[in-house]
Amino acid sequence: MIKKIAGMILIAVVSAAMLLSLSGCNTLSASEAYEVFRAAIEESLTGDNGKIFYWRESTARLRPGSSNLVDEVSVNVLCDMNENYEFIREENAGEYDYENLKVHVVKTHDGNTTEEIWAGTAGNGTDYIVRATDGGSRAFEAGTAYQFVETEEFNQNYSLRSRLEFLTDIEEDDLIISSAEQQGNLLTITATMSDGYLAEHPDSDLDGKRVVIEITYGRIASVTTYKDEGGGGIFTLDYESYMLEIAYTGPIFTVPNP
C-alpha cells in the first residue's frame, strides 16, 4: 500500500516537473538576450503588431506624505474582427487596410482624465475625430480614424513606433543585462543602463535602479524602470518610475455620438 501511495506521489511530482519543463525554464546569456530584445522590437512593429495595439505608459513621481503623481497615457487602436478574432481587412483603404478602424486616446494626471480623443465611426454611422479636455464638453470634427493615424500628431505621440523608438537606440553595450530568464513564452530581462547611455540621454525614462523588459511571443510586452524611494537601506522599496505595457489587441470601445 505504501509503495502504491509513494508511486502516486511520484507521478504527481514528475508530472508537475514535466509541465514546468514544458513551459521551458532557462537562462539566456546577455548577448542572446540582447539579440532576442532587438528581434522583439522589430517584431512588435511588423505587420498587424505595429498597427493594431493597446499600449499604456505611466510615469510616477513620489511625493512623501502625499499620493504619488502619476501621469498615464493609453492608446487603443482597434478594428473589426471576425469570429476567429482575425482582423477584417478592407480593400483599397491605404496602409491601414482594416475594417472599421478606430482609435481611443486617454491621458490622465493624478487619476483625473485630462484629455481624451476618439477617432472612427460613431453609432450614427458618421466618422468623427472627437476631442475632450479636462472633463469639459466634447468637440466633434469630421474625420476618419484612417486620416487620424496618418497625422503627425498620431505618429509622433500615439503610434507604437513612437513608443518603442527610445528602445531602438539601445546598443548592446548600453544595456548591462544582469539576468535573462526564459519561462515558457515569457522572457524577463533585468538590466541597468550604462553611464554612457545615460549621459547621452539625460532625460531617459530608463534612468533608474534597474530596468525590467518583458518579452512575450517574441514581442515587447512591457518595459519598467524601478527607482528606490529613499537613499537606500533595508526598508527601501522600489517603485516604478516608468512603465510601458503593450497588448496587441485592446478592449472594444465605441466612438461617441454628438
Binding site: 521551458g24 519561462q183 513564452n185 515569457l186 511571443y217 512591457s222 505595457e245 485592446g250
Partner: peptide, 9 residues
C-alpha cells in the same frame, strides 16, 4: 509563462 504578469489586458 503564457504572458500574464501585471498587465491582464
Amino acid at each position: 509563462a503564457m504572458g500574464l504578469t501585471t498587465n491582464y489586458d
